[in-house]
Amino acid sequence: MSSQTHNHSHHYYVPNPVAYPVILSLGLLTLASGFIFKINNYPAGRWMMIAGALIILSMVFSWMGKVISESETGMFKSWEDKSFRVGMIVFISSEVAFFAAFFGALFFMRVISVPELAHFDPNYTMYKDFVASWPSIGPGGNVIRFGGALETYKPAANFTPMAAWGLPAVNTLLLLSSGVTVTWAHWGLIKNNRNQLIIGLFLTVALGISFLICQATEYHHAYTEMGLTLGAGAYGSSFFMLTGFHGFHVLLGTIMLIVILIRSIKGHFTADRHFGFEGVAWYWHFVDVVWLGLFVFVYWL
């Protein structure tokens, strides 16, 4: 945090006017409104969602393509590079805060709300027989659902919690190994060993896809055989929201890894300038660390 002494020998790159952001926002507006209409039983929403998603995809593709071509034509020097690095760190910090909300919900329900529900004065509670435990599906009973009609809430026939030392442990192994392979690829890039770079990235992508396949298997198993669904009380809610958002991030990370794999094969990145690679690697490590939190607090303890 000391004084800034660099003397920039070139002008900072300020890109020319572009239309991607405003069209991208329009795509998000279309997708969001379509989704809202769809979940409120207006079927036309589906077509809005498809249109919105197509707009978003094409804009992301064009925008990223533009950045890559700028990068390859040498528009970014060390000054711009530092902006991207700091920006990526701040972005990943915001992702940490997003996951913190769901971990917070998990801890709150497990430590505070579920035990409290079991310890009310029996004269003043409708959940007289509820015994606190974890995993919990909650006490059940009557609940006012959407629309205001009082209907009887049927707790799902009890479910089996997900055991830590089966597929989840395999998944832990897969993700931890992928952290190693991406670092190995990075070493290859730094010492100009392009084969090591490409093989390392290929292995990382393969491990990411294997993780996603395992998780899909696990979800299928949970829904069809274990009675573990989104509706399975506090445990089901926190289990699927945490692992689901994590899985979504693994999916994004894998797509990003595939992009930099293709770029590496095309000969992009140099030993001393490769923010595109490092940004993805940082993101991948972040996804890895979140998984460790999930494994410990959602599956294991």
Binding site: S113, S136, Y235, M241
Partner: peptide
């Protein structure tokens, strides 16, 4: 989900 619903914990 039941994040804000006592019936689900």
């Amino acid at each position: 989900t039941h994040f804000f619903d006592a019936a689900g914990g």
